[in-house]
Amino acid sequence: MQDGPPAGTPLVLFNEIEPGIAILTLNRPQARNALSRALIDELTTRVESLSRDDAIAAIIVAAEGKVFSSGHDLKELTAHRSDPDGGQGFFRETMQACSALMRGIVACRKPVIAAVAGRATAAGCQLVATCDLAVAADTADFATPGVNIGLFCSTPMVALSRNVPRKRAMEMLLLGEAISAPDAMTYGLVNRVVPAQDVLGEALNMARAIAAKSKATVAIGKEAFYAQAELPLNEAYDFASEMMVKNMMQGDAEEGICAFLEKRPAQWQKS
């Protein structure tokens, strides 16, 4: 059985379904959308490009097929055990590339929303946890099951432990059991749970709400959120105060405050 679309078919489909909203769709359904090196590289390139695109306000990451993503491509990884170094170099390059993708999503100036219609496991669960927001089907589930096959989900752990309480993260990592979408929402891994047929529509609703805001304000807010989260309390407040001042000096802040006081719709800058 072929583990992906025909040769030459993009591994990540791009669609700007309406102005300002980009949809990136993982396109390896036959391989359960496993994150091969090629898919990782393609998704990284897409995210970096959209981050620089002034016309884009929000990005949705979806997937073809019944599985959002099964994580790293274990067949691809195993094939490299025949390399002279036993695969160590390829394993390192792959993990570094995947980590760069996750950091790129966090650094992206546009909010990234995961639309999860099916199972998300290991690095696929990591991808969901890394996105700024996530909508899941009520039939979806989530797991970091690497411990079951002797490969602890150490890199997925980074994103997971920054989204869910520590005991819940350790439960997922140590037991390797799948959790339901409602439990994932309770844990804080996803924002909303809806019927499967409504996942993309709900993600679009969130993207539209974001697109109606000032792009400049959203960008500065996303940057500030992740930066302050890594700082001690006093440093976080100092940093956030400076970001507020920086934000206040932007034209959209002046326009938005004036519009609010004058009880009229704000006219945001285009970029």
Rank of each mutant, 00 (worst) to 15 (best):
M1C: 09
P5K: 10
L13W: 05
L13A: 09
P19I: 11
A22E: 07
L26F: 01
L26S: 00
S36I: 01
I40F: 05
L43I: 15
T44L: 15
T44C: 10
R46Q: 14
R46N: 14
S49Y: 07
R52F: 12
D53W: 12
A55M: 08
E64C: 14
G65Y: 11
F68W: 02
S70W: 04
S70V: 06
L74W: 07
L74P: 09
L74S: 10
E76V: 12
A79G: 12
A79R: 10
S82G: 13
D83F: 09
G86Y: 03
G86T: 05
G87S: 08
Q88S: 12
F91H: 13
C98V: 05
I105R: 06
I105P: 01
G118Y: 02
R119V: 12
T121G: 15
V128G: 00
V128K: 04
A137G: 13
T139R: 13
T139I: 08
F142W: 02
T144D: 03
P145E: 01
V147Y: 03
V147L: 06
I149V: 04
I149F: 04
G150S: 00
L151T: 05
F152H: 07
S154R: 14
A159S: 09
A159N: 03
A159W: 02
L160N: 07
N163S: 07
P165G: 05
M170E: 13
G176R: 01
M185W: 11
M185A: 10
L189S: 09
P195Y: 02
A196C: 05
A196S: 10
Q197P: 08
L200Y: 06
L200E: 02
E202R: 13
A203D: 06
L204K: 15
S214E: 00
A216E: 10
E223H: 15
A224G: 06
Y226F: 12
Y226K: 06
A227E: 12
L231C: 07
L231E: 03
P232G: 02
P232M: 00
N234W: 10
N234H: 13
M244I: 06
M244Y: 04
N247P: 09
Q250A: 01
G251R: 10
G251A: 08
A253N: 12
E254M: 04
C258E: 08
A259C: 01
A259I: 02
K263W: 00
R264W: 00
P265V: 06
W268V: 08
